[in-house]
Simulated scan of single mutants.
Amino acid sequence: MRILVDADACPVKTIIVREAKKRGIPVTMVVDTSHQLNDGYSEVVMVDKGADSADVKLINLTKSGDLVVTQDFGVAAMALGKRALALNQNGMEYSQQNMDKLLFERHVGKEVRRRGRHTKGAQKRTQADDRAFEEKLIVMLERKRT
């Protein structure tokens, strides 16, 4: 198992690295050239700026049994298609059971925005979000070890 992170705007990189180091699990952070990243543990894969360039690279690196951390539903769907696990930065585990609903909601939001209407933006991140992510990450890492 490896942990692959869609790291451009990921607020939980520190948590991921801390828990991965405890267990000796390799981490790969995928970022575009507009970001600087060096945590002393992770392999950092840098890609050119461009629409979906980091997402494409991340999915190309993903193998069955890996854990992908992303907030992008499309990336998560492709990870699941490769028999990897996928986790949202707020602690929601993506699954075949919730993916259709999430992708449909994303589609509806895009249609609303395309018509000039506004949708709610992301809520401000809280410590509770970090705790929920950390708890679910630990559960998923421990589940894979057994």
Rank of each mutant, 00 (worst) to 15 (best):
M92R: 14
V56L: 15
D52H: 11
R115Q: 15
I3Y: 00
E105P: 08
L103S: 01
C10P: 14
K13I: 15
K101D: 07
A77W: 03
R145P: 04
H35C: 00
D55R: 05
Q127T: 10
S53R: 14
M92H: 08
N88R: 12
L4G: 02
R143N: 14
S53P: 08
F104Q: 15
L61S: 02
L141G: 04
E93Y: 03
V47T: 15
A51G: 09
N98H: 03
K49V: 01
G50D: 10
A122Q: 12
G116P: 13
I25E: 13
Q36F: 09
E134D: 05
M99E: 08
M78Q: 12
V75K: 00
H118V: 11
E135Q: 14
K120A: 13
N38L: 10
F73G: 02
L87F: 04
M78G: 00
G24Q: 13
G81C: 11
I15S: 05
R114I: 03
A9N: 08
Q36L: 10
E135C: 08
D129L: 09
A122G: 10
A51C: 10
I3Q: 01
K13A: 05
M78T: 07
L141Q: 06
V5A: 04
Q127P: 10
V44M: 09
D52F: 02
M1K: 05
H107G: 03
M1E: 04
A77V: 11
K101T: 05
D6I: 00
S64R: 07
S64L: 03
M1L: 09
D66M: 07
R83P: 13
D39R: 03
Y41L: 12
K82F: 12
M92Y: 03
D55I: 03
Q36N: 11
T70G: 11
A132Y: 00
G65R: 05
L37C: 13
T33C: 01
K136G: 04
A7I: 03
T28S: 10
E43Y: 05
M46R: 15
S53H: 10
L37R: 01
L137D: 03
G121V: 07
R115A: 14
G116Q: 08
Q36E: 14
M46E: 15
M46T: 15
L87G: 06
M46I: 14
R143M: 13
K57V: 02
Y94H: 11
L137Q: 04
Y41F: 15
V75I: 14
E134G: 02
V45R: 11
N88V: 03
G24L: 13
S42C: 11
H35A: 00
T70A: 12
A77N: 12
G109D: 14
V75W: 02
I138C: 06
R2T: 02
R23Q: 13
D32E: 12
A54K: 04
G74P: 07
E93L: 14
V44H: 01
H118F: 10
M29T: 05
I59A: 02
T146Y: 01
N98F: 02
T126F: 08
Q71L: 04
D55C: 09
A76S: 11
D39H: 05
V44A: 03
L80Q: 12
G116A: 07
L87A: 06
G81K: 10
G74W: 03
L87H: 07
A128M: 11
E134V: 02
R83L: 15
E19G: 10
M92D: 13
